[in-house]
């Protein structure tokens, strides 16, 4: 697979910046406030720009224009989807903690993030499968491609279902015990199909098609078989899965930066899932 990444020199600086930013956002002073949260967010954005710049700089220039256009298109699409929640992004600080739909707004945003991340991970996994030759010694690359596809489709379907539920496009459903059993059964079946696709690449298109269908169903089931109050747990779990997929992409692209970043995301999701949720945006002023 011809996806090399020779940016680990820049990657170390970006990783240092990210660690400093994480410290700035989650470190604690005596008053209980983070030391310098706005500068930390700026540092994160700076690290992202640094990495993107180095990736585009070290390429041979054939696809650079396409990459720039796609990045700009995606950035332009994001505020539109966030504005759909009925809250202007630059509407002043007073309006941002209004009680009307504060929780739904941030949960919808997180669901949108999981939708986009899931589609992206699935497409990258599919690319990995297309670009890999089906020799016996490339089984690890094929395994990563199939797992990325599975995680991506599952995350996409779960995020989409949660977004539909949060915006009242679906009727209210009460989770039952049977749904959770079916989730486990479908998960085992999909994993088995994925393993078969890795072992027998000759029949892979049928097996992977079935696996994608099952992953879609799994995402829908896992988002529908929970109460809507525990939606943040599903979102946190899928963010952790995206982190695992990023770590696997780092293995494919031989980038220690992506490996370390995936580990950080998994750690953040694990830490989040152990506790209860609280956002400042969700709090009502009175």
């Amino acid at each position: 697979m011809n996806v090399g990444m020779q940016i680990d020199f820049i990657g170390w600086f970006a990783l240092i910046a990210i660690l400093v930013a994480v410290h700035g956002l989650s470190g604690q002073q005596k008053s209980g406030r983070a030391p310098w949260p706005k500068a930390a967010v700026g540092l994160l954005i700076l690290a992202m720009a640094m990495m993107l710049g180095s990736v585009l700089w070290t390429s041979d220039g054939s696809n650079t224009l396409l990459a720039c256009i796609m990045i700009l298109l995606g950035m332009a699409a994001a505020p539109l989807s966030a504005r759909k929640q009925g809250r202007p992004p630059a509407g002043g600080e007073r309006a941002e903690i209004e009680p009307d739909g504060g929780q739904d707004s941030i949960l919808s945003g997180l669901a949108l993030i999981t939708i986009g991340g899931g589609v992206s991970v699935a497409l990258l996994g599919l690319t990995g499968w297309v670009e890999t030759d089906h020799e016996a010694y490339t089984w690890d690359l094929r395994l990563i491609a199939v797992i990325s596809l599975f995680i991506g489709i599952w995350t996409f379907a779960a995020g989409l279902m949660l977004w539909l539920r949060l915006n009242d496009y679906l009727p209210k459903s009460t989770p039952t015990r049977t749904q959770q059993r079916v989730v486990i059964a479908v998960l085992i079946l999909a994993l088995g199909l994925g393993a078969l696709a890795v072992i027998y690449p000759a029949y892979a298109s049928i097996l992977m098609g079935l696996m994608v269908l099952l992953a879609l169903e799994l995402g829908a089931l896992s988002a529908l078989s929970i109460a809507i109050t525990s939606a943040t747990r599903v979102l946190g779990r899928h963010l952790g899965m995206i982190g695992a997929a990023i770590a696997m992409l780092g293995y494919v692209q031989t980038s220690l930066f992506l490996l370390a970043l995936g580990g950080l995301i998994v750690a953040g999701a694990v830490h989040y899932l152990r506790g209860r949720v609280d956002f400042y945006q969700m709090k009502t002023p009175r």
Binding site: S59, D60, N63, G74, L124, I246
Partner: peptide, 15 residues
Amino acid sequence: LAGFMLVAATSALVN
């Protein structure tokens, strides 16, 4: 941090 997948995707695109 998961947004940094953009870096991985871009690197895959240019290669």
